[in-house]
Amino acid sequence: MAFLWSLAAFIPLDNYGHYIHWGVINISVANFIVVVLMIMTFVAALLLPFPGRNRRKGNQ
């Protein structure tokens, strides 16, 4: 349990949030990271081969 508490301390959650300002755009770093992760997931979903895809094609 103590190990888990020390692990949680790696990410300080008691500080003020960090924000990115770019013109009219104002987004928290946390939300920005989530948006970047979504874009990365989307691109990976398009590019990565799906398991068993060739086998299914062969059966047709």
């Binding site: 979903a45 398009l46 799906f50 895809r53």
Partner: peptide
């Protein structure tokens, strides 16, 4: 269908 064999269809 065969075209469903893509990661984009799992979401």
């Amino acid at each position: 269908p065969a075209y469903v064999s893509s990661w984009i269809y799992v979401f």
